[in-house]
Design a protein around this nucleic acid. Structure first.
Lengths: 222, 222
DNA sequence: GTGACGGTTTTGTTGAACAATCGGGAATGA
DNA sequence: TCATTCCCGATTGTTCAACAAAACCGTCAC
């Protein structure tokens, strides 16, 4: 499972930094000094700047001219936007899916993986598996542009999850939902699967938004 | 109308190179030597590499490890994918639009602009106005992510148009269609507007694909 | 004709350097 | 005490020069 691609140092570093950001190791809003971070990551400043360009374009970092880059701060508006994108892409993808598509197998794998992770108490693993499940839904379309765009949006969403108290537990209530959606799909009832997914997204959005609102009230008390 | 933002040299250079690529001044598949292009654009090699990262992520350039970057070569599969994305985004955007949205004004402006350009025989202007019209449709959603993603896809599509003989004339037959869609929207009949747009996209896709197929047959004779 | 080989070119990466800009604190004045 | 101005240090934006590594290309032996 190790990446067989001996990617360039820049991309490799981008992957490392991306992981740090998503894992919450770097707090949103935190400014990233070029010289210091370059030293930490053991790359040159020029290479790090290329990495910054990549991650900025992905939406994980923000870049203010002459003021450097900082970790993007998720906003409620942003989360709302991402859920709209999810609805727009995921629901039609499932509705017009071919039940025996290769991506359906990946969906099944992710469901199993999520259950195993929950048994082990590995909430982070649950979150990853859930993300993979929805990425597989989009992969049903065989559209490289949609899958890339969706992956980017999900990375941003994950950044927002990092702000919440017990982020991965947000996924837990929806675990069985994934299994039900998958069953409807393999049974060929794509319409029902899509409807159930739409409902899933509505409820998930509501949970996340309320947690987010609670957080903002607590963090900015006036 | 000049850009009030004194953007960084990298972004400014990116805009210039992007314009060159879209204008067809650089042919698809052509390799871009870092040293030579850096000299041509009067920027350093490092800055040019940052520009490459940007445009590669936009889909206008492709990057092969240790083999440099080259102008992306549009494929029929790519065009097909882009039209699928267009249908998925544009039609719902129009269907659930608020007829008095600010973007509707921009749509009207683009229609007028396109007509004026056609009168003047400025086919490139017609193409730009048409692109603006559809960008405005997506702007109806108020979703920054969708608009950014859509703009990127349209830039790729424009790159494909650059391959065709009289690219901008492909837009001409659809000029009145834009006006009709706009009228339906301002009249509040968003459902009819969306239906008409869907039909527009189907026909436009067919025209472009056939022109593209003709081209590929002629270019690769064996 | 095919395959190995070596030189040339290009990319990937680093380090140092400098101008431009930003942020903060000191000095000044009311 | 408070506000304004000015200056200095730190950081970013950009360039240049250098070198290792990889790919390209022509040559040569077989």
């Amino acid at each position: 499972m190790t990446d067989p691609n001996p990617a360039s140092l820049a991309e490799e570093t981008a992957a490392r930094l991306r992981a740090q950001v998503i894992a919450g190791h770097l707090r949103p809003g935190q400014r990233l000094s070029e010289t210091r971070l370059a030293a930490d990551l053991s790359v040159s400043r020029n290479t790090l700047r290329e990495v910054f360009r990549l991650l900025t374009r992905e939406g994980l970092l923000t870049h203010a001219p002459n003021r450097g880059v900082s970790v993007a701060v998720p906003s409620m508006a942003g989360v709302l936007d991402i859920y709209r994108v999810r609805r727009l892409i995921e629901v039609p993808a499932l509705a017009q899916a071919w039940p025996r598509h290769a991506a359906a197998l990946r969906m099944a794998e992710c469901v199993a993986q999520a259950r195993a992770a929950r048994e082990a108490g590995d909430w982070r693993g649950v979150g990853s598996a859930n993300m993979g499940f929805h990425a597989a839904i989009v992969a049903l379309t065989d559209s490289p542009r949609l899958t890339a765009f969706f992956a980017q949006a999900m990375a941003e969403l994950r950044l927002a999850f990092g702000l919440l108290d017990s982020p991965e537990q947000l996924h837990a209530p929806f675990l069985q939902e994934n299994g039900a959606i998958l069953e409807l799909l393999v049974a060929g009832d794509t319409a029902a699967a899509a409807a159930r997914l739409a409902d899933y997204l509505d409820r998930s959005e509501r949970v996340v938004m309320s947690a987010f609102a609670r957080l903002e009230n607590g963090v900015t008390p006036g």
